[in-house]
């Protein structure tokens, strides 16, 4: 891996984020709006339900940010015509995506932390955490779990002109199936879908770190959740790597690096 390329992509993503105010909507405003609505809905409730509302806002912030940023990672370059100069450098495409994903992850994490702080500051419904340090660690794990799905989707987004539509469609299913919105047992026959999502296990680990127990049917403790999340993340990353290889080969064959 070329660290200079990773750093360059990280900086570029940062500048683009700050230069283009549209990202504030999915990354900052939407999660806050959701948290506010969820907290109003649960005004009279306490404990795990409030945790779900606050967690939901935080996870939505992270996922929204990761999804839009990942989806746009390659699409942006194809719009701008800047993907070809990148492909002509000795750096790998994966270096660029890694650098950008690190920036997105940091913004996602910042967003989640801000949601938690504002829930406490504005609504006075801060969640008392059983293990704050572990909670923060699990927050980072959740972020990377979401990022790994985003990375895989980033490759698929290259194939479609309708990447914005797909991004919008995908925003809520992950949120629902990961158990961030409500316990996955309530999904009934659809619950198995949740088990192949790394965020399900990391969100559950978040709940274990916060209140001492999670929601998954197969609950063997925090370490088990972390292990499963890592296995699934490794699978997503491997899938993303191979997808990028295949897509890169196909677009070189078709000469369609810039399609728009």
């Amino acid at each position: 891996m070329n660290l200079k390329a990773v750093t360059a992509a990280f900086k570029q993503q940062g500048i683009q984020f700050l230069a283009d105010p549209q990202w504030i909507i999915p990354s900052i405003i939407a999660p806050f709006m959701f948290t506010i609505v969820a907290l109003y809905m649960h005004t009279d409730l306490t404990g795990p339900v409030v945790l779900t509302a606050v967690l939901g806002g935080g996870v939505l912030g992270m996922w929204g940010n990761m999804l839009f940023a990942s989806g746009f990672t390659i699409t942006y370059d194809r719009y701008n015509g800047t993907i070809e100069p990148i492909m002509m450098t000795p750096s790998h495409m994966i270096d660029v995506i890694a650098g950008r994903s690190i920036w997105n992850a940091l913004i996602g994490l910042l967003n989640a932390v801000l949601v938690f702080i504002s829930a406490e500051a504005i609504f006075g419904v801060g969640v008392s955490l059983a293990d704050p340090l572990m909670f923060f660690a699990m927050l980072v794990l959740t972020l990377f779990a979401l990022a790994s799905i985003g990375l895989m989707l980033a490759a698929l987004f290259v194939l479609t002109r309708a990447s914005f539509v797909v991004m919008t469609i995908l925003q809520f299913p992950i949120y629902v199936f990961s158990g961030a919105l409500f316990p996955i047992q309530q999904l009934g026959v659809f619950a198995p879908i949740s088990y192949v999502l790394a965020p399900t296990w990391s969100v559950d680990a978040l709940k274990i770190a916060a209140i001492g127990h999670g929601d998954t049917i197969v609950s063997l403790g925090l370490s088990f959740n972390v292990a499963i999340a890592f296995v699934l993340m490794a699978f997503y990353i491997a899938a993303a790597y191979f997808l990028f290889k295949i897509i890169e080969r196909n677009i070189r064959e078709s000469g369609a690096l810039v399609r728009y």
Binding site: Q12, I15, Q16, A19, N80, G81, T82, E84, P85, V258
Partner: peptide
């Protein structure tokens, strides 16, 4: 390579 179309990042 200097391409036919301008291939620079317009946000930078």
């Amino acid at each position: 390579v200097i391409q036919q179309h301008i291939s620079l990042d317009t946000d930078l």
